[in-house]
């Protein structure tokens, strides 16, 4: 199993926002397709979201330790009380450390007949969604996303298996994408 622990080449801070190929070209990407990356601000968004989620978990996992240190209840071994929050902390840090790489691995490409979406490094997925199969396109924006000027674009076909979400698309690009996809979908619409 290839080691995935060390973060690869860091992105220079002043990198141009969108049309950069994903940092991790993988073996299953189709050849000769220039992928566009989503915004790097998605990294910030995910760090905040997952960091908050991690804090909640950490707080829950530290409860035995706190009870023990406070002397309220100590009916369990000390190593367990220490090991539980440490394990959770390590996991949270690991998850957070992976975020920048994961964000850089998200890419999409508009081809003539279809949209390609790729995700993930370790668990990698490439999906192709034909324009003629798109039933509708959702563009959503949560409060945090709004602050960062990002949107999520969700593509729906008649199949529940088509789970194509593009997170962290800059709002203007999302609007363009929505219009573009709808127009192409309309032009190539096929029956079921």
């Amino acid at each position: 199993m290839p080691s995935q622990s060390s973060p690869a080449t860091p992105v220079p801070p002043g990198a141009p926002p969108v049309p950069v190929p994903p940092a991790h070209a993988s073996a299953i990407d189709p050849e000769g397709v220039p992928f566009r990356r989503v915004s790097d601000r998605l990294t910030t968004l995910r760090l905040i979201e997952r960091g908050l989620g991690g804090l909640v978990f950490l707080a829950a996992a530290s409860l035995p330790l706190v009870l023990r240190l406070a002397g309220v209840w100590g009916g369990y071994p000390a190593w367990l009380a220490w090991a539980l929050p440490s394990a959770v902390l390590a996991t949270v840090l690991w998850v957070l450390a992976l975020v920048p790489r994961q964000v850089r691995a998200i890419g999409y490409a508009e081809r003539n007949d279809d949209l390609l979406v790729r995700h993930g490094i370790m668990f990698h997925r490439v999906m192709v969604v034909p324009y003629g199969r798109m039933q509708y396109v959702d563009v959503t924006m949560g409060p945090l996303e709004r602050m960062l000027g990002l949107s999520s674009v969700h593509l729906h076909t008649a199949s529940p298996g088509t789970n194509a979400v593009l997170c962290g698309v800059p709002a203007a690009e999302a609007a363009r994408l929505r219009e573009q996809l709808s127009a192409r979908g309309e032009a190539k619409l096929a029956g079921l």
């Binding site: 370790m122 668990f123 034909p130 199949s159």
Partner: peptide
């Protein structure tokens, strides 16, 4: 065919395999 995807986990990557899904 609605859409297609290729998936690969770490073990499959090591063995040079890939899962192909049709939706």
């Amino acid at each position: 065919t609605q859409s297609l995807s290729l998936r690969q986990g770490p073990l499959m990557a090591a063995l040079g395999l890939v899962d192909f899904e049709l939706h």
